[in-house]
Structures are given as structure tokens and as C-alpha cells.
Design a binder for these strands. Structure first.
Lengths: 344, 344
DNA sequence: TTGTACGCGTTATCAC
DNA sequence: GTGATAACGCGTACAA
């Protein structure tokens, strides 16, 4: 059963092929009468335009791609959601690729989408390796980066400013009397990891926390690194941990759950990234939240600008501190006091 | 800067257009000598095949679509991940659509992918409304359904058998001495919701739990329904709750966290669906897990079969019960005993 | 405003 | 095994 083509529509409407095309696509001028006829014919024939044929001529496919390290990471899940929503509103569909840690998969995906002639691509780079990004740039495909800036290349970057949230977070820890704060950092080779740590240090300085020392454990942005780092930090006697991303924070939770360390009473916790479930587990987890919805939407805007040949500015969205129950720390000496305090 | 076409490759390799096409696509026979020449020419010219042009002739796009209610629901996130992985291995890219509750969005997405001429589509229906599905069938697009069977239509369904997991789960609750079990069910209009409840009842019977009563709260598969239902069940004195899906289970967690109800000691919990974070929160949540990876892969297999014109069987994957810490229930009378038991 | 003819890059169908 | 040539469905410059 052959598809109904624009030819069929033209015949049914008793107009020329070109007229039908113009009436349906909206380019060029058609008298409203004939347009009406064409539209009716189209819908009565159940006409579905063939994007592939159109793309062949117009060089635009109405399709963009989103490449993330792992869509199962809630940050990327949400980013994907908002980006897809924004792009669909703009009339484009989104091809997703979840690359995992595997470079072969990344290249696989890249080859496929290049063949598909996507209009543009958004990449959230996982590793320090730039080869994929360079390929995209070389192929001259409009590109927007999430999280990771790329030096000396005019590719728009959408990311976050860790400072606002970080400042409040540190202030809060300080006001609770913490003197030994542990920091779980991401790979120092990643700019965002460095930025977050710098913001952390700056926040400490800003509030002039005398006598406050901090301990740092570096690792990749993974749950396992979070577990291992937590273990190490606890040995060093920290009373609070600030995890530089959600995966690391999840690792903290995991370690504490398996070692019966009670978050809140025994250990304060703040996580950079607000995974949905942080809100309704017990105790709920205090976070420094990125504006993921904003990132997705702005990435979409930036991408269509790039596709249109315009330039799009780098955008750094503010973060906010959200205080929850993981900050109910009761230092040992306070516990001692309580014990003696039999009046209550 | 014009794209390099297969023409250019053919010229460079000093062969005819057709030969180049056969050499590159693998269809038809070419002497290994000339194939070599063509391949070399292609890579040295940095040739990228144009899928759109190919699709115009071959009627196949190497693209499939996946439509889920909300990709942010961890079940669908993981399903998307595995499905995408499987499809990429088969050489297809995946267009995703996250429909939300919005029907307009669904239709939007549908129109777009029909224009894209996707080879097939996998739908995980959200509502009882079949209009989207019917449209796909009417357009004669190969279709596979996740979760939801469709009566009297030969569309493959990939879903789960709740029985194995449910049986073990109920047995476990019984062996812990629960006599009042609460059940949070999904919309009775949904087959999977009915199936799960039926499996629950069957499990109760199977183990001949004398004196065990159960209480049921129905709602849609949402966190809010879980919260409200939990509240209602607790008022009725249940000592354990079985939630019929992950969202409902999340609602239980949320209610308990905000009302200081300790899961484990105060209330046993088993959730149908194994969200990743259930494993490492405290207490960890016992679950009846679906084989999502299997569902994703089998859906991919079934879809390519449909595309190839073959029929694919309905597949129901077994569930498994995974025991975790949310079952450490200590009934009030046991607590009393403990109090008196000062020997320990 | 409307219709015609051509080309987009590829695959498929022929003859050779 | 190989090389011309005709589609595929649509947009658009051009002529009418």
C-alpha cells in the first residue's frame, strides 16, 4: 500500500504540484481559496508529509541528537526530559544516545547520527577525551555543550554557577558548628569539578571560618568513588560531608546505610545535585540544586540559534541551596550534655 | 562546502555509481578488489552516507521511536536505556518521546515521527486511552507494546509475570507474622494493575494464610496516590504494605519520612519495581523486581521482527523477590517482650 | 498566483 | 561483476 504523496494531494485538489507544496509548507504565496482546497484534500487523503524527501532538498531534518554519558543518571534523565520537551515544542524530534563509559558506543552513535544528518547535537561530555566533540565540530554540525566548556572554540556552553548554592551551604555547615568538613570532589581534570571545589574554598574563605579544616577526597563522579571517599573521610574524623555531585552523594548514602552510620545525627550531608528521591527519603538530603529545567531549555534555545547560523552565548545558571534533614547534626559533646540533662 | 556523495567516491575509485553503492552497503556482489578500492576512496574522502536519501528509495530509515509516559520515572528511564542500547547494537537510532499526561503532546510526537517515517515504534501506554495506538496501527507502522496487552490485535506485548515475585513476597510477610497486610493498587482499569492484584490474592490463598486480612487502597500509579493510600492504610492498622509499583512505593517512603514512621521497625514494605536507589537508602527497600533489561532487549528483538514482517510472540518475563531491610518488622508485642528481656 | 521541470543522494533494475 | 538509468517524494527557480 503506497504512501499518499503530495502528488496525490495536488491531483485531488486539482492544483499543480508546486502549489500543493506551498500550501502545505506555508512558504510562498497561495490564495486562501486554493490553500483551503489543498488542505482538505490532504486531510481527506490522510496525507503524511515525508520528512526524508523534504530533507533531501532542504538540508534540514527536524531532528537533533542528545548524547549523554548515561541516561540512568538522574541528572541526565531530567536534562533529557526537559531538552526533549523544549525541542518538541520547537518542532524537532530528539535522538538520544546513552554512551556509557564505552568509547566504541560513542563513535557508533556518532556515525549513525551523522548519517541521519541531524540538524544539531547537544553533548554532555563524560571523559576528558575530546575526540567525539572534535569530530562533530569538524563535520560542521551545530553543537552545544552541557557542563563542559571547550577552550578556544566558539561552542556555546550551558552550565551552572556553583557559587551561590555553595556559599549558603558552607555557611549553614559553619553555623551548625562543624569544624571538620569533608569534601568529595570529582576528577580534577574536569572543569566543573574544579569549579565546584574552587567555589567551596571560596565559600570557606568568605565566611572566614577560623579553625575550620577540611579534608578532600578525589574520585570520578561515581557512586563507588563516593563510598570509598566517605570511608576515608570518616576515618579522618569529619562531621560533615559535601559531595560534589549526585553520584558521589549517592555513594555517601550507600556507605552510611551499610555501616549503620546515621546521616543527620552522626554526619551532616550536603550533595551538589538534587535527585528527586533526595526529597523523600529519611532523612531527606540537603542539596545544592542546579536548574536542570533551565539548562535543558536554554540548551534547546542555543542549539536552534546555532542551527540558524547565529551565535549563542555561554550560559551559567545559578545554583541554590536547599536545606533538608540531613543537617540535623548532634556533635558528641552535645550528646553528652543531653545525657546529663535529665530534666527533659 | 558540499557534502561528499557516493558519486564522488565512485569517481575517486574509478567505478560506476552502482558498484560503489553495492560495495558500501554490502548488498549485491562486488569483487573484493574493487570493494577495497571503494572503501579506501570513501574513507580518504571522509564520505558520510546520507540516510535520508537512502530512505527515500529503500523505505527504511534505521530509526525507531520509543514513547513513554514520563522518562523521569525510573522504570521508564531504565527501559529506555536498555532499549536504546539494544537498538543501537542493531544499527538503529532511537527517537524518544516523553508524553507526560498530555494528550496533545502525544499526538504531537506521533505526527512528527510519522513524518520521519520511523521503521517501528514501541509504546508504553499511560492511560486507558487507545487512540494513539490505534493511529499507529492504522498507519501500518510496526508496533510493540510494553506492559499493556491490546485485545484482539496481533501486536506483540512485552510485560512481566507478577506471580513468582509476588508469591515469595507474600510468603515472606506471612513468615514474619503479619496479619494485616495493606495493598496499594494501581488503576483497576489497567490490566497490569489487575494482574498484580490477582497475583497478590493468589499468593495469599496459596499459602493459606489463616486469619490474615488485607486492606486495599486503589489509586493511579503515582507518588501522591501512594502517600494518600499509605495514610489510609496506616489508619486501618496494617503492619505491612505492598505497593503495586515504584511510584506508589515512593509515595509510601515519602509519607513515612514526613510522619516519622520508621520503615522496618514500624512498618514492613515491599515494592513492586526495583528502583536503583531502593538498594542504598536506609532502610533498603525489599522489592519485587521486573527484568527491565530483558524487557528492553526483547522489545527490541520483537520490533525488528515486526519490521521484518515476521510475527513476534507476547513475552511475559518472570519477576523476582529481593529481600532487603524494609522487612525488619518488630510487632508491638515483641517490643514489649524485649523490654522485659533484660538479659541481653 | 500558479504550474513545470529539475535536482537532492541513494538504491534497484536492468542490460552488458 | 559491472555500469548506466530510472525512480523515491519533495522544494524551488523559473516561466507562464
Amino acid at each position: 500500500m503506497r504512501d499518499v504523496t503530495i502528488q496525490d494531494v495536488a491531483r485531488a485538489a486539482k492544483v499543480g504540484l508546486g502549489t500543493a507544496s506551498r500550501a502545505l509548507s506555508g512558504n510562498g504565496s497561495v490564495s486562501s481559496q486554493t490553500r483551503q482546497r489543498v488542505l482538505e484534500a490532504a486531510s481527506s487523503l490522510n496525507y503524511r508529509p515525508n520528512r526524508n524527501a523534504a530533507s533531501l532538498r532542504s538540508k534540514t531534518t527536524g531532528t537533533v541528537a542528545l548524547l549523554v554519558p548515561d541516561i540512568r543518571n538522574p541528572f541526565f534523565t531530567e536534562l533529557t526530559y526537559w531538552f526533549e520537551t523544549a525541542m518538541r515544542a520547537k518542532g524537532s524530534t530528539v535522538l538520544i544516545g546513552s554512551a556509557g563509559e564505552d568509547h566504541a558506543q560513542e563513535n557508533d552513535f556518532l556515525a549513525q547520527i551523522m548519517a541521519q544528518r541531524v540538524d544539531g547535537i547537544v553533548i554532555s561530555p563524560q571523559s576528558e577525551d575530546d575526540t567525539v566533540i572534535r569530530q562533530v565540530i569538524e563535520a560542521d554540525i551545530p553543537l552545544v555543550l552541557i557542563d563542559r566548556p571547550l577552550k578556544q572554540l566558539s561552542v556555546p556552553v550551558i552550565s551552572s554557577r556553583p557559587e551561590p548554592g555553595m556559599t549558603e551551604a558552607v555557611q549553614n555547615l559553619a553555623s551548625h558548628g562543624h569544624t571538620c568538613i569533608g569534601y568529595l570532589g570529582g576528577p580534577q581534570s574536569l572543569p566543573i569539578a574544579r569549579d565546584r571545589y574552587a567555589a567551596f574554598l571560596e565559600a570557606l574563605n568568605e565566611h572566614g571560618l577560623p579553625g575550620t579544616t577540611h579534608f578532600v577526597e578525589w574520585g570520578n563522579f561515581s557512586r563507588d568513588a563516593g563510598k570509598i571517599g566517605t570511608q576515608a573521610l570518616l576515618k579522618r574524623g569529619v562531621t560533615a560531608i559535601l559531595a560534589a555531585n549526585g553520584q558521589l552523594g549517592t555513594g555517601v548514602l550507600e556507605h552510611c546505610a551499610s555501616s549503620n552510620q546515621a546521616i543527620g545525627p552522626d554526619l551532616s550531608l550536603i550533595v551538589f545535585d538534587d535527585y528527586e528521591y533526595f526529597r523523600f527519603i529519611s532523612p531527606s538530603v540537603s542539596v545544592i540544586a542546579q536548574d536542570i529545567e533551565g539548562m535543558g531549555r536554554i540548551a534547546a534555545d542555543a542549539l536552534v540559534d546555532c542551527i540558524a547560523g547565529k551565535t549563542a552565548p555561554d550560559t551559567y545558571l545559578p545554583t541554590v541551596f536547599i536545606k533538608r534533614d540531613s543537617l540535623r547534626y548532634a556533635p558528641p559533646d552535645m550528646k553528652e550534655n543531653r545525657k546529663g540533662d535529665s530534666l527533659h
